[in-house]
Structures are given as C-alpha cells and as structure tokens.
C-alpha cells in the first residue's frame, strides 16, 4: 500500500489555479525527487498536502486516512492536525523563527509528545546529519547565514517522528557547494518505512540520489523529467 496517494488534486490561490487534476502516489521507503522550473507548482503541491493553499479539491490519502477533500477557505486551519498525523514539511525559504535560538527552533519541530520527550536524542541525531549546527545551538536563528538557516529548517523537520518528509527547494539561494552537501545529507538520512519528497529545481543535485524522479510542468506531473525542464536532458539512471 502506498504511504501517500493523491487523486485528482486541483489547488490554487484565489482565482489562480496552479495544480490541474494531478495524481501521484508515494511508496513506503521511497525517496522521490520532484523537479520542475520555477512557478510550475512544486511548492503548491507540497503545500496542498499539508493544506496550506488558498483552496483545494481532490483526495489525499495518507496511510489509509483521507486528509484532503474540497476546501475553499480556512488556509492552514487543518495544517497542524495533518502535520501531527505524521507529515513533516521543511517549507521553501526559511520558515524558521528568527528570534528563537537554534536549539529552540529545533525543539519546536518535535511536536508530538513522544518526540518531545526524546528531543535531546533527536537533536543529537540532527546534529549528526548537519554537524555545523552543533556549534550554533545557542545562537539566535535570525543571525545565521542562509545555508545554516536552511539546515535549521530541514533539521526542524527531521526532529519529528514523521512518516513522510516534504522538503521544498533545499538548494534555493544557496552556494552550489553548500546545497550539494545539504542534499547529500538529506539523501543519506535513514527514513525506514517512511518516505521523502524533495522538490528541487536543480536536476543534477538529485540525479542518482533519489529512487524516483518526476517532472512537474504547468501544474501537472510529467513522467518525462526532460519535458519539465526544457532543454536539460532526462537522466537515464534516475528513472524507474
């Protein structure tokens, strides 16, 4: 059984419709790469899963439970519930808390009571993934550099004991070397029976690291990654 199954998803903001009747399913233990140019709906797809778009329609089944449905208002009203049911999102840009310390930022990611109790251990394992954070725990998150902020944001998502991790544009605005390291670290994390979706513009970053790659073009899923990215040749190894 797939861990996440989207059927007939449409979503958008106000009069703008971004996703058009989209189907997608994610299997347990799978690392899925979602590539596509700017403005083709990658972020909207991830936000739709957690209910953060302006409106949405269509079914989203997560671990056999329906979390989607038609919704015309109430942005983010269901998000906390969805997130608590086991989906962690590292949103685009940094939705970190600039006035809190790095430690508090990470702790805020441990939102289930089980993960809150084991937050020290979880913090250590996040630091294992992102060693630079170890020295910065006391620092205010607002004073970090872009790469460090992104690490905090992704690390915060890893603090929860979620089944599904959604990582949105880990490389956005980062130097190539740093984003390479970040994505490599992401792809080495043990997700067990869970799954991870990484949305990314930069195809070579994901190539060979994820189990499956899908292209997004104009709000629809294209199996052919090259089509979504225009002239970039499709990768042979990344395809199922």
């Amino acid at each position: 059984m797939s861990i996440l199954k989207l059927t007939g998803i449409s979503a958008g903001y106000g009069p703008v419709r971004v996703l058009h009747d989209l189907d997608l399913s994610v299997e347990p233990g799978e690392r899925l790469g979602l590539v596509g140019l700017n403005g083709h709906g990658k972020t909207t797809l991830l936000s739709t899963i957690v209910g953060l778009t302006g409106w949405q329609d269509g079914s989203i089944v997560f671990e056999g439970k329906e979390i989607g449905g038609r919704r015309t208002h109430g942005v983010g009203r269901k998000t906390p519930g969805i997130v608590r049911s086991g989906i962690a999102l590292a949103p685009q840009g940094d939705a970190i808390f600039p006035g809190l310390s790095v430690k508090d930022n990470l702790d805020s990611g441990a939102y289930t009571s089980a993960s809150w109790r084991s937050r020290k251990r979880r913090r250590d394992s996040v630091i294992n993934v992102f060693p630079p954070l170890g020295k910065l725990l006391k620092q205010t998150a607002g004073t970090l550099s872009g790469g460090e902020r992104r690490m905090v944001s992704v690390g915060r998502a890893l603090m929860s004991d979620s089944k599904l991790y959604l990582v949105d544009e880990p490389s956005l605005g980062l130097a190539p070397k740093i984003s390479m390291g970040l994505v490599a670290a992401l792809c080495e994390i043990d997700i067990g029976e869970g799954a991870m979706i990484i949305a990314e513009q930069n195809l070579p970053l994901l190539e060979g690291r994820v189990d499956r790659m899908l292209g997004m073009h104009a709000g629809e899923i294209k199996l052919d990654v090259g089509e979504a990215l225009g002239d970039v040749p499709p990768s042979a190894g990344g395809m199922h």
């Binding site: 953060l52 600039p98 809190l100």
Partner: peptide, 20 residues
Amino acid sequence: LQMRAMMMNPLGAAVVGVSV
C-alpha cells in the same frame, strides 16, 4: 515555545503543528 514560535512566524508555527 509554541507561543513564542507563533509570535515570530505564524506560517512556520503551523508547519510545526502549532494550531493557531
């Protein structure tokens, strides 16, 4: 922590499961 998080960034708070 949740309250302070919500003060800083309501969107981020929603993402980490804080119900507004």
